Simulated assay, not measured.
Amino acid sequence: MIIYQRALGLGFMALAVLVFIGARQFPPGAMGDPGPQLLPMLVAVLMFPLGLALALQRKVVDENAQADKGPVDVKRVFLSAALLVLTVVLLFALEWLGTALSMVLYLWIAAVMIGKRDPLSLLRYLVVSALIGGSLYFIFVQVLGLTLPVGLLFEE
């Protein structure tokens, strides 16, 4: 279990660095406006120490998990890698899909990958993902006044 935590933590740290570097390419804000680079930079700054904490964690979170001496669980390694790839793909698709749709898709696909896959669960995941994604988008745009990508698919 610890090897998975370390690998996933290191992966998210690397992703945080890539997101931070990529966000610097967005134009900075002017006259008090935070600009489009603030949100991805903030996510990267928060993601890096969380990845570091996961990578350095010594205690096994799941008491029922096998010790590191057991065989490597290929399914768990694949799932961790797939979630990391999903994160990268949707970060790059953000410009085309827009923030709201990207958040909803990310949450829904991640929930489908991790959870049950019966029709009722898929519908629940979609509803919860839409509520969370829509709420976050509302908070960032309406409450905080941030300018987030609408997506090339939805531009007028």
Rank of each mutant, 00 (worst) to 15 (best):
V17K: 03
L18T: 09
V19S: 07
V19K: 04
F20C: 15
I21H: 05
I21A: 08
G22F: 09
A23P: 02
A23Q: 00
Q25K: 14
Q25Y: 09
F26V: 11
F26P: 05
P27M: 13
P27Y: 10
M31K: 13
D33G: 10
D33E: 14
D33P: 08
P34N: 01
Q37H: 15
L38V: 00
M41P: 09
L42T: 08
V43Y: 11
V45K: 09
L46E: 02
M47F: 07
M47T: 11
F48C: 05
F48Q: 07
L50K: 08
L50H: 10
L52W: 10
L52G: 05
A53D: 00
A55S: 03
A55D: 03
R58A: 12
K59M: 08
V60T: 14
V61D: 12
D62Q: 06
E63Y: 09
E63H: 11
E63T: 09
N64Q: 13
N64A: 13
N64V: 08
A65M: 03
K69N: 14
K69H: 14
G70K: 15
V72S: 05
V72D: 01
V74G: 07
K75F: 09
K75Y: 10
R76G: 05
L79M: 14
L79W: 14
S80Y: 04
S80R: 00
A81L: 14
A82I: 06
L84Q: 01
V85H: 07
V85W: 06
V85L: 11
L86R: 06
T87V: 07
V88Y: 08
V89W: 14
A93E: 09
L94P: 03
L94F: 05
W96N: 10
G98E: 02
T99Y: 14
L101N: 02
S102I: 02
M103E: 05
L105V: 07
Y106H: 08
W108E: 02
I109Q: 05
I109R: 04
I109G: 04
I109E: 03
A111C: 10
A111I: 10
M113V: 06
I114T: 08
D118K: 07
D118I: 04
D118R: 08
D118Q: 09
L120C: 06
L122F: 09
R124G: 11
Y125V: 06
L126W: 06
L126S: 12
L126F: 15
L126N: 05
L126V: 05
V128S: 02
